Computed example of a mutant assay.
Amino acid sequence: MNTTPQQQVAIVTGASRGIGAAIARRLAEDGYRVVVNYASNIQEAERTVNSLRAAGHAALAVRADVSKAEEVRALFDTAERELGKVDVLVNNAGILKVAPLADTSDELFAQTFGINVQGSFNTMREAARRLNDGGRIVNFSTNVLAMKLPGYAAYAASKAAVEALTGIFAKELRGRQVRVNAVAPGPVATELFFNGKTPEQIEQFARMPPLERLGEPEDIAKVVSFLAGPDSGWVNGQVLRANGGLS
């Protein structure tokens, strides 16, 4: 595990369950005070926070819709007031709804870009002003970009935008010693992945990587821990593809 000082603070967006909750747990184990951000699922967020506190970690649940700049500002305000100035931002919040491009509604396109792109943009812009020097930002892309799967046009396009923002922002923060990277998971065993898929489709995805299994939330949490910690001190502006060798 990393040897991060206890006083460092991490915000994990979309952390009430799934990969986000696993990241919150891992960063808490690494020594961070953790802000568990959620948009609507207060019960799951509080359950995650309560489990962290029961294990002796400092954690706080904060509601914010990351697609709204004013709520992102309030998220940082609360984090600073309750736990201290932020050192790590993990942009895990995201939406995935599958539809052929020709059948993708204006509403779905706007929602996908609002959360996946505008949300990451809002938090990074706020972090530019408020993250401690030497901080770390970890964004989320997807292995779907490499696979070019039919039905994922809006989702993949939103994550391509996140990858572009990641590389450019890393260069714009020159002089601050702030590192900006992204992780691009392959298929991971979460509710988001299972939703709408048949058992046969799930099995097909599990067989695709050479490692012949779905990823687990903890697999991705370990990658985020690496990118947020000191062992990745020479890694900046990169996309780490954690997909079991799928692409």
Rank of each mutant, 00 (worst) to 15 (best):
H57M: 08
R129C: 09
K171V: 07
M1N: 14
V144K: 10
A128G: 05
L149N: 08
N92H: 08
Q7Y: 12
Q118D: 00
D77W: 00
N37E: 00
P187A: 05
V180F: 04
P100C: 08
A93V: 04
R17N: 05
D219Q: 07
A160R: 11
G237A: 00
N132P: 12
V162N: 04
E46W: 00
R179K: 12
T190W: 04
A189W: 10
V49N: 08
R53Q: 13
A10I: 00
V66R: 00
Y155V: 02
E82F: 09
I95P: 06
E107T: 13
K171S: 05
N139Y: 02
R179T: 07
V239I: 09
F76W: 03
K85N: 14
A146C: 12
G18N: 02
D133E: 15
R53C: 12
G18D: 01
S67A: 04
G237Y: 01
R174I: 15
S247D: 13
Q111F: 02
K222S: 15
I95H: 12
Q6H: 15
N122L: 00
N236L: 06
G20D: 08
V66S: 00
Y32H: 14
T198D: 05
P150C: 00
M147F: 08
M208S: 13
A79G: 06
T48K: 09
K197W: 03
A28T: 09
A61P: 11
N50Y: 11
N41C: 11
D133L: 14
E200A: 09
L75E: 01
R179I: 06
N181E: 02
A221Q: 09
A61K: 01
L173W: 10
A59Q: 08
D231W: 09
Q111I: 03
V35Y: 03
G18F: 01
V117H: 02
L75P: 01
V235K: 11
A206I: 13
L240Y: 08
F193P: 11
R125L: 06
G14V: 02
I42Q: 14
G56N: 14
E70A: 01
S232I: 01
L165G: 04
T104C: 08
P185G: 05
A157L: 05
V90Q: 01
F194V: 05
L173M: 15
E126F: 00
L60I: 07
L83S: 04
A206R: 12
D219V: 10
E107K: 09
F205H: 13
E191C: 06
Q177E: 11
R26C: 10
G56K: 13
E80T: 07
